[in-house]
């Protein structure tokens, strides 16, 4: 997709910039013009990105409760997180579960729905709107709606189950089902991914599908060997943004399960928020934030590295 392609072409161009060559007045003018246009970002980047990251790195090496000044303690926070804090271990496990199961689940459902929507049909805009709508629902409202849907006694699912005389499903109140129940909500709200996939699917060249059909590929084979490869750039994009977002999962977990039952939904951001704003352990929370950052970086690199093997760029040769 655009993301990957663009970085690639940028790389080529970067090499053509020769730092030692003398700049012409025209070049200097264009440099100033360019910098002027991106100046809001430069200020924002410095003040709201670079400084906070550096400060956070420093705080992570301190004990800081806001009331008293930060006290430098070296790597103690990190040592404590990895050796003493058992909740932290649970938190990492929960978060990785959420990302490793939730992101692919959402991606697969979004892709299948987009493929269905891509077929010729009546009322396509209506269907598209219905599948898209959940993503518009604010997380706070989503939490209340699903709390009611998942209600053990009178929620829509358990109410039917009860009327059939079966055992109710405890959803968010059980240790085993709490995480899958949250993932189900995530899978429900895949609107953005659906729209992105739909756009990618519409770009699958008709000629390629016809050629595959002539070669005797059945619909399933065409889907697997033509449609999916063509859409891999979009899949990469959705996977990356989904992964980064999922590692920061907060609102629904905070409102719906508050980390429970028995810490089964205590995710990274929840625990970090608790440490920072409930226990006022700003240093300890900053160390967690940095660990989260490094985990996200590692996953991003892993996905990017592997993408060379499975992402197909149609425009690669140009």
């Amino acid at each position: 997709m655009a993301g990957g392609c663009m970085i690639k072409t940028a790389g080529h161009r970067m090499r053509t910039i020769n730092m030692s060559q003398r700049w012409t007045p025209a070049q200097i003018r264009s440099l100033l013009k360019g910098l002027a246009f991106i100046s809001p970002w430069i200020v924002g980047f410095g003040g709201f990105v670079l400084y906070p990251i550096a400060a956070s790195a420093y705080f992570s090496l301190t004990r800081y409760d806001v009331l008293r000044p930060a006290r430098f303690i070296g790597l103690e926070n990190y040592v404590e997180l990895f050796t003493k804090d058992e909740t932290f271990r649970t938190v990492i496990g929960n978060t990785v579960y959420l990302v490793v199961i939730g992101v692919p689940a959402g991606l697969v459902v979004a892709f299948l729905l987009a493929s269905l929507l891509n077929r010729e049909m009546q009322f396509r805009p209506l269907f598209r709107t219905i599948f898209f709508l959940p993503v518009l629902v604010p997380a706070v409202a989503s939490a209340e709606v699903w709390r009611w849907v998942y209600n053990t006694n009178y929620g829509v699912i358990n109410s039917f189950i009860k009327s059939w005389g079966l055992a109710v499903i405890p959803f968010i109140s059980s240790v085993e089902l709490a995480k899958p129940s949250l993932i189900l909500i995530h899978v429900w709200a895949q609107g953005t991914a659906i729209i992105i996939f739909l756009a990618a699917l519409q770009d699958v060249p008709r000629s390629l599908m016809d050629a595959a059909e002539v070669d005797g590929a059945n619909p399933l084979q065409r889907f697997w060997h033509v449609t999916i490869p063509i859409c891999t750039p979009a899949i990469l994009f959705v996977m990356l943004t989904g992964m980064i977002g999922m590692f920061q999962y907060f609102t629904l977990g905070w409102l719906l399960t508050q980390g429970g039952p028995n810490e089964s939904t205590e995710f990274f951001s929840l625990y970090l928020y608790r440490n920072a704003f409930q226990f006022f352990k700003m240093g300890y929370a900053s160390a967690q934030a940095w660990i989260l950052f490094i985990i996200i970086l590692a996953f991003t690199l892993l996905i990017f590295r592997s993408s060379a093997r499975w992402v197909y760029y149609a425009g690669e040769s140009n």
Partner: peptide, 16 residues
Amino acid sequence: TMMIPFQVRMIPLYLT
């Protein structure tokens, strides 16, 4: 910068 989780910036931003 899209990769940077809000949590990394959250505490310094709050303090600022």
